[in-house]
């Protein structure tokens, strides 16, 4: 069944990561509501408690906030904070490995296509 979950992290963490990627893409935009716990549970076919834990994780990172009776909303500045965090992650974790590989392959910046999406 879709989607598939890896064994690299707890499922709630993987869902939080997926939702964070969507936030980064502006979906939903800041100030707007996230889908309800039940809607997310149904969409991903996972337990509602797992969804609640994922939303809690996003809330702990200051990305979403709960408004009583209305659900979870994307906080102002969430995208910026997320972007900063992701950039840091990339530079610290992904880039060293990527740089090593580029060096091994003898590729420089001008060999890479920067235009296409």
């Amino acid at each position: 069944m879709t989607p598939t979950w890896t064994d690299q992290a707890p499922i709630y963490q993987q869902l939080a990561d997926r939702l964070a990627v969507q936030l980064l893409d502006g979906s939903p935009p800041e100030g707007e509501a996230l889908p309800s716990v039940r809607a997310l549970a149904s969409q991903y076919v996972i337990n509602p408690l797992t969804v609640t834990r994922a939303l809690q994780a996003l809330s702990d990172h200051g990305l979403v906030e709960s408004r009583r009776g209305l659900g979870m909303f994307v906080m102002a500045g969430a995208r910026e904070r997320l972007l900063r965090h992701e950039r840091e992650q990339f530079l610290q974790k992904d880039w060293p490995a990527l740089r090593a590989k580029l060096k091994r392959l003898g590729l420089t910046a001008k060999d890479l296509n920067w235009e296409s999406t």
Partner: peptide, 19 residues
């Protein structure tokens, strides 16, 4: 089959599980 199983569980989560 896999599609039917998914629809079955979707209905269960959607329509039954209310906390």
């Amino acid at each position: 089959d896999v599609i039917s199983r998914k629809s079955f569980y979707e209905m269960l989560i959607d329509e039954w599980c209310d906390g």
